[in-house]
């Protein structure tokens, strides 16, 4: 009897170590009514041991800056790292000031257009490419790589290429192309002029983003069983019907994810705006560009630092992302299809 208990204990210890090493729950199979509490305690220790570092990292890397930024947004602060003793309470002044600030409002207008128009273009083109690639087109691997290629290039290099070559007003790609095609009115467009600068920026950003979303859509489409399409074809469904009745409904969750990713990218729009306007300008300013100039003094002659105002912009960006995320979830409710 004693020997069997010892064997059982040893096995219990062994299993516990094994399970613990794998990051799994300790083997409850050995517990009885009396020993259950003891094992639960051990489970908690395991959980704490494994989750602890991640939770700590989250608290340090995300929660602390988040809370500090929210707090900072209610103060006037001379520098981003100024000690709390130098903060002066301003209540909601930073927020009220922003909504009276023409440049911040211009940045919101720009970001709205980037999100809506740029989003519609990017997601539509990406979906179009994904559907074509999933349809069994020849050279699929090549086309997939070619469309994704711009994503492998650094945004600064890509923007420079657009600015100094594609949009160049005398010998640029578009100028040469449209002139050779005889499309003189298009050839005359100066894409970096104040009138077209925003649209030029948006066009190049869309070009740089399509490949990424194309891959996401393609992955979603490729998991749809091919027999659904075969069946639809037998029933006489054309390409459009197959897309609207099979493809799109079955990648709805993928589309929702893509829309959320696009929103996050659009709201944090910075590099392209900075590249298309070396100095801050209402034509291309976005909330993050404005925030950067407020907190770090911007480029060219320095601007006075307003870390509290910058924090308020940061908080508002976060709130916008949250609102859009909730709206997307409400409008595109999750529907589970089994296939």
């Amino acid at each position: 009897m004693k020997a069997s208990v010892r064997i059982c204990e040893a096995q219990k210890r062994h299993n516990t170590e094994q399970f613990g090493a794998m990051g799994l729950k300790s083997p409850i199979v050995f517990t009885d009514g009396n020993g259950g509490v003891k094992v639960k305690h051990r489970e908690r220790l395991f959980m704490a041991g494994y989750l602890g570092p991640a939770v700590l990292c989250f608290l340090i890397i995300f929660a602390y800056p988040l809370i500090r930024t929210i707090l900072m947004s209610f103060f006037v602060i001379p520098g981003i790292s100024s000690p709390v003793s130098e903060w002066k309470f301003a209540g909601l002044d930073n927020y009220i000031g922003m909504f009276r600030n023409g440049v911040f409002l211009a940045s919101l207008n720009n970001i709205w257009r980037i999100w809506l128009i740029g989003g519609a273009l990017t997601l539509a083109i990406a979906l179009f490419y994904a559907v074509i690639l999933a349809s069994g087109v020849k050279g699929k691997k090549f086309w997939r790589s070619a469309i994704y290629l711009p994503n492998t290039v650094n945004a600064v290099a890509l923007a420079t290429m657009w600015l100094q070559y594609v949009f160049q007003n005398k010998f640029g790609l578009l100028k040469t192309l449209f002139t050779s095609l005889g499309w003189t009115s298009l050839a005359k467009i100066n894409w970096t002029s104040p009138k077209y600068l925003f649209w030029g920026m948006l066009l190049s950003y869309v070009f740089g983003s399509v490949g990424y979303f194309m891959l996401i859509f393609l992955a979603g489409i490729e998991r749809i069983p091919s027999d659904l399409y075969e069946s639809a074809r037998i029933d006489g469904a054309g390409a459009w019907v197959q897309f609207t009745r099979i493809t799109f409904p079955l990648i709805r969750d993928v589309f929702r994810t893509a829309l959320t990713l696009w929103t996050i990218g659009a709201v944090n729009f910075f590099t392209w705006a900075k590249m298309f306007s070396t100095r801050i300008s209402t034509i291309t300013v976005t909330p993050v560009y404005f925030l950067y100039d407020k907190v770090f003094g911007g480029s060219g002659t320095a601007s006075a630092i307003d870390a509290g105002g910058g924090a308020a912009v940061g908080v508002m960006i976060a709130v916008i992302v949250l609102i859009v995320h909730v709206a997307i979830n409400r409008l595109l409710k999750e529907e589970v299809y089994e296939y």
């Binding site: 023409g102 440049v103 404005f290 100039d293 407020k294 003094g297 911007g298 060219g300 002659t301 601007s303």
Partner: peptide, 10 residues
């Protein structure tokens, strides 16, 4: 010596 972002942008 300094130029504010608000003024510069406009």
């Amino acid at each position: 010596s300094t130029i504010s972002a608000e003024v510069k942008a406009v």
